[in-house]
Amino acid sequence: MVKKPRRQIAYVSLLGITQLHLRNPFIIAWWSAAFPGFGHLLLSKYFRGFLLIGWEMVINSQMHLNEAMVYTFIGQFEQAKAIIDLHWMSFYAPVYLFSIYDCYRTSLDLNLNFILAKRENAPIDVFKIGCMEINYLDKRSPWVAIVWSMLMPGMGQLYTNRILNAFFLLANWVVISYLAHLLDGLQYLFMWDLTRSVSVVEMKWLLFLPSIYGFAIYDAYVNTVEYNKLFDREQARLLESNYQHPHFRFPESPLLK
Rank of each mutant, 00 (worst) to 15 (best):
175 V>W: 13
106 T>K: 05
102 D>M: 05
143 W>H: 14
171 A>G: 13
159 Y>G: 00
105 R>I: 12
123 P>N: 11
100 I>L: 09
158 L>V: 03
154 G>A: 06
99 S>D: 10
111 N>F: 09
108 L>T: 05
110 L>H: 07
107 S>Q: 01
127 F>C: 10
177 S>C: 11
136 Y>G: 06
170 L>G: 13
157 Q>I: 00
163 I>C: 11
174 V>K: 04
156 G>Q: 02
170 L>R: 10
110 L>D: 04
127 F>P: 06
182 L>V: 08
165 N>L: 13
163 I>F: 14
98 F>I: 06
112 L>N: 11
151 L>D: 07
154 G>N: 09
125 D>M: 07
181 H>R: 14
137 L>F: 07
129 I>P: 02
155 M>T: 13
152 M>I: 09
102 D>H: 07
149 S>I: 02
118 K>G: 06
131 C>F: 13
132 M>V: 08
159 Y>C: 01
145 A>D: 01
124 I>W: 08
175 V>Y: 14
153 P>W: 00
176 I>L: 15
116 L>R: 15
173 W>G: 02
99 S>M: 02
113 N>G: 03
118 K>T: 06
164 L>D: 00
123 P>L: 08
122 A>P: 11
158 L>W: 11
150 M>L: 15
141 S>C: 11
167 F>Y: 11
106 T>N: 03
170 L>W: 03
154 G>K: 06
183 L>C: 07
153 P>I: 00
168 F>Y: 14
117 A>T: 02
123 P>E: 09
106 T>C: 01
100 I>G: 05
129 I>G: 09
117 A>P: 04
134 I>G: 04
151 L>R: 04
150 M>E: 10
174 V>I: 15
137 L>N: 01
144 V>P: 09
153 P>S: 06
153 P>L: 00
115 I>M: 14
120 E>L: 05
100 I>C: 04
120 E>V: 05
176 I>H: 08
173 W>P: 03
105 R>C: 03
184 D>K: 05
